[in-house]
């Protein structure tokens, strides 16, 4: 590993966890959002060396075996997945949002997800998925 490379590169190319996505590699799209010691960050903006000794949870870590996490299930059911390239980052961001607030209103959802670009859905079904998952978790 080269310590100056990004955590995203480390995950995708060295560790074999390509679930976190590489859409912009400059923190503008959120498709590489992962938890770093419990905090959602853009993996592309973390130097690999900075993550040493930290707990990293990626989209691959959300499901419980065969059982999808309720946020994942809500994305599937609501039609929030089209091409799906933004989905891994959004799932982590929504997972975090609902962990902090179990009943976010629309402006809260919009502000919380402003860093996750989606080019397919116009976000509407993503908001539906957030509300669906929130309703079920309450």
């Amino acid at each position: 590993m080269e310590a100056g490379e990004s955590l995203l590169f480390l995950l995708r190319e060295r560790v074999g966890l390509p679930g976190s996505k590489n859409a912009c590699e400059q923190g503008e799209c959120g498709s590489c959002t992962v938890y770093l010691d419990g905090t959602p960050v853009c993996a592309c903006l973390v130097a690999a060396g900075q993550a040493q000794g930290c707990e990293v949870v990626t989209v691959e870590g959300l499901a419980d075996g065969d059982e999808l996490h309720p946020v994942q299930e809500a994305f599937v059911e609501a039609g929030a997945v089209q091409c799906g390239f933004c989905t891994p980052g959004l799932l982590v961001a929504v997972h975090d949002l609902l962990a902090r607030c179990d009943d976010p209103d629309e402006p809260q959802i919009r502000e919380a997800l402003a860093g996750n670009l989606c080019r397919c859905t116009g976000y509407e079904k993503i908001f539906d998925a957030v509300r669906l998952a929130a309703g079920r978790s309450r």
């Binding site: 310590a3 100056g4 490379e5 990004s6 590699e25 400059q26 923190g27 853009c42 592309c44 903006l45 973390v46 130097a47 060396g49 900075q50």
Partner: peptide
């Protein structure tokens, strides 16, 4: 490098080369 939100953009795009990074995070 602390949050990395400036430094890493340059590195990822190959717009800057750094011989040394000091992580203060």
């Amino acid at each position: 490098i602390a949050g990395g939100t400036d430094v890493m953009v340059g590195l990822n795009f190959g717009h800057r080369q750094e011989s040394r990074l000091i992580d203060i995070s």
